[in-house]
Simulated scan of single mutants.
Amino acid sequence: MSGTGEHLKDEGTKTQVVIAGATAGLIARFVIAPLDVVKIRLQLQTHSLTKPPSPGALTTSPKYRGTVSTLKQIFREEGITGLWKGNIPAELMYVSYSAIQFTAYRSITLALQKTVGENKLPSAVESFIAGASAGAVATTATYPLDLLRTRFAAQGTEKIYSSLLSSIQDIAKHEGPRGFFQGLGAGIGQIIPYMGIFFATYESLRLPMGTLHLPFGSGDASAGVIASIIAKTSVFPLDLIRKRLQVQGPTRAKYFHKAIPAYKGVSRTMQHIVREEGVRGLYRGLTVSLVKAAPASAVTMWTYERVLRALLKLESNSSVVL
């Protein structure tokens, strides 16, 4: 990476961007996997946060309470591997998603500059359009893996799917191709503003924060953390709705929480949650989500910048030798 203040999106070849993005996604996913499992478990609980409990009502009996206690309970009941449930499809998703996202972001930005003219659009507007479009493309392409990740993470002590292959075969047989895309509307509705806000904020903060003396030698990680927190909080209700829709189907009553209601459609799911759980129900798991988002984004952006820098240096050294 040069010190001339060039944007992340203008640096590196397509191959270098793919390698850097995939590596960043792989490492970040493994680091935050346990928190991701906790987030999904909390998001799928449907007890009311506003109404007094009714004796004997399944929806008012939460299994998990809080991040730390949930981590301990999963570890106690399911072992250390329980904290990494769904990690195989998640790793595949993160590697693919990151590579597609960064590649699309770079390509769309360059296309905008070619169509509209370089420096014609404000940097924040350009980053928002490129980020939102790249996020939508990556989300759609990797959505089946996201759904599988959620279903594996939602499995308690009762095993529903024995392997990744068996889960694909089961969904294809009993739910058809549409079964792999349940909740995609919420995913697209979430990712467009999320990625737009994230990249616009990140690009605005990265260079100014790079002049500060921060941990890890630059402001990349800190800018990623701030951008992620702002973006994640803004769209969190859609993330929760996506998770609720992803576990719909013939296996709905077999997950750790047996009383997940039957939902259909984004707006009706939102109305049902607000009616039965209150507005706070839309933000169930937000705390652990923010705790997860900070290290995930920091690791992703920090790793991406440094892998790309290493690849550019390697290319430069190879050119000198030749």
Rank of each mutant, 00 (worst) to 15 (best):
T4W: 15
K9E: 13
G12I: 00
T15Y: 10
Q16G: 04
V17I: 12
A24V: 00
L26V: 12
L26F: 13
I27L: 06
F30R: 10
F30P: 09
F30I: 15
V31M: 10
R41C: 08
R41A: 09
Q43V: 01
H47D: 12
H47A: 09
S48T: 06
A57H: 01
P62I: 05
K63L: 14
K63N: 11
K63G: 11
Y64F: 14
G66T: 03
Q73D: 12
Q73W: 11
Q73S: 12
T81L: 14
G82C: 03
G86M: 02
P89Q: 05
M93F: 05
M93W: 05
Y94W: 11
V95D: 08
V95R: 02
A99G: 07
F102K: 10
T103K: 04
Y105C: 03
T109Y: 03
T115I: 13
V116H: 11
V116I: 09
L121A: 06
P122N: 06
S127P: 02
A132N: 00
A132F: 03
A132K: 01
S133T: 10
G135I: 02
A136S: 11
T139G: 05
Y143H: 03
Y143R: 02
R151A: 04
A153L: 01
I160G: 04
L164F: 05
S166G: 08
I168F: 06
A172P: 01
A172S: 14
K173H: 09
E175H: 09
E175D: 14
E175A: 10
G179Y: 06
A186F: 06
A186E: 01
I192R: 00
I192M: 09
Y194P: 01
G196E: 07
F198T: 11
T201E: 08
T211L: 08
L212Y: 15
L214T: 02
P215F: 02
F216L: 09
G219C: 01
V225W: 05
A231D: 08
T233V: 02
F236E: 02
F236M: 07
L240A: 06
R242M: 13
K243H: 12
K243Q: 06
K243N: 01
Q246L: 10
P250H: 07
A253S: 15
K254I: 04
H257K: 11
I260L: 05
K264E: 14
S267T: 15
R268V: 08
T269S: 12
E276W: 00
E277D: 12
G281C: 07
Y283W: 06
G285W: 05
L286R: 06
V288G: 04
A298S: 07
W302D: 14
E305D: 14
L312E: 04
L314H: 15
N317P: 07
S319T: 11
V320T: 08
